[in-house]
Amino acid sequence: MFRRLPEIETALNAAAEAVAFTIDGRPAKARAGDSVAAALLANGVTACRNTPVSGAARGPYCMMGICFDCLVTIDGTGNRQGCQVRVSPGMAVETQNGKREVER
């Protein structure tokens, strides 16, 4: 679980810095400049997908584009690295069910 530092939270609540987007259809709020992965964590979403191998839950791990655990569907495109894409107004972020997607 993560929270904003108080002065940043205050600024975010006050002003134009807030970006409205959705997580699995639910409205959410982020700060301009947040990566999608950071925005998920800031909104209390620690698990963003389950794996295609065992179905285990995963969440952001490295935050620098190397571990590929923060894969999410962004505006309909799957398998995007949440930590490498900046959140933008109106963006639709969906968590991924990798296990269901690849089962025959």
Partner: peptide
């Protein structure tokens, strides 16, 4: 040297 490539998992 014949070349190959592979994708991430996609639905069957």
């Amino acid at each position: 040297a014949p070349m190959l490539m592979i994708t991430a998992r996609v639905a069957p």
